[in-house]
């Protein structure tokens, strides 16, 4: 490929009224890379993705998608990228087959009928082909939307929370599919709230209230956070409050029969935990969740 990046944008900003939804976002997504886009609700993920595919005009900034200018060549971008909206936006009064057929016609797919049938078969929609989209459950709607945005074999997929409301098995299948596509050189930008999904991305960006707070591989982000975590084998409900009081402890999360405790200063926390008589604990790997919660907490502390 003559262009190393599928997405290469700098300083994109977008405001609605006087509210800044995205603030100087710069993003580089390599060809064949799965790029995770994380951040709390309302932080500007959807707005960013819409700017990338030409649905919103950036107030500031510039860049390219698949080598095409995001401001001036959105027509070309639309032809070669597939965008899956956060909210289901296919026609509820059309059947699955009719929706896919509509999309295939718009892209002038050769051999349209076969493409549609194969796409339905691949995503397990074949037996519901004639069901109206409006009568599908959430998970099936997501599958339909995914099938539709991949129908024209795009080079770039922009997926906005594609697995919201999808059961774990289907989510796993979905991610296997994403990795298979990435293996073929397709680039993927995917927003998500699930940590297990974040962990399956090649790279991640974390955005909060319009600002990009961190970007890198999952390992880099964990290392950058400087967090040390401990698993405490106890499920006494009263313990949580006491753990939070310990010096150096930033996060305490109850998880079934144990607590996960983490903070910047591992030694300090270990000493504090040792102070509890008979408490069993061990150091564990820090998860992405702790990293992101720390990022969030820092933003909220910084806010006036």
């Amino acid at each position: 490929m003559n262009h190393p990046y599928a997405i290469d944008v700098h300083g994109l900003s977008k405001s609605f009224g006087n509210k800044r939804a995205v603030n100087h976002l710069s993003l580089q997504v390599a060809e064949g890379e799965i790029y995770g886009f994380l951040g709390p609700n309302g932080s500007g993920k959807t707005t960013s993705i819409r700017m990338l595919c030409g649905l919103l005009t950036p107030d500031e900034g510039s860049g390219t998608c698949l080598g095409y200018d995001v401001r001036r060549q959105s027509g070309e971008i639309k032809k070669q990228a597939g965008y899956m909206t956060q909210r289901f936006s296919f026609y509820e009064d059309l059947s699955i087959r009719e929706n896919l057929d509509f999309v295939a016609r718009l892209y002038a797919m050769p051999d349209r009928k076969r493409v549609v049938e194969r796409s339905m078969a691949e995503l397990g929609l074949a037996h519901r082909a004639n069901q109206l989209a409006g009568t599908l459950s959430g998970g099936w709607k997501q599958r339909l939307a995914l099938a539709a945005c991949m129908l024209h074999r795009p080079r770039l997929l922009l997926l906005d929370e594609p697995t919201a409301g999808v059961d774990p098995k289907a989510r796993r299948d979905f991610w296997d599919e994403i990795h298979r596509l990435a293996g073929q050189g397709i680039s993927v930008l995917v927003s998500t709230h699930y940590m297990d999904e974040a962990a399956r991305c090649h790279r991640l960006a974390y955005i909060a209230y319009g600002d990009l707070l961190a970007a890198g591989t999952p390992e880099e982000l964990i290392a950058q956070s400087g967090l040390t975590s401990f698993a405490v084998q106890d499920d006494d409900p009263a313990l949580a409050a006491r753990l939070r009081q310990l010096p150096g402890v930033e996060q305490v999360v109850a998880m079934g029969s144990m607590y996960s405790v983490s903070g910047q200063d591992g030694l300090l926390i270990a000493r504090g935990l040792a102070g509890f008589a008979g408490l069993r604990f061990e150091q564990v790997d820090t998860g992405l969740e702790q990293v992101f919660i720390r990022l969030m907490d820092r933003v909220q502390e910084a806010a006036p």
Binding site: L55, K78, K79, Y83, R87, S89, V103, L106
Partner: peptide, 9 residues
């Protein structure tokens, strides 16, 4: 559905 329609070329 407009969002989708606009995203098509």
């Amino acid at each position: 559905t407009l969002e989708n329609l606009l995203a098509f070329p």
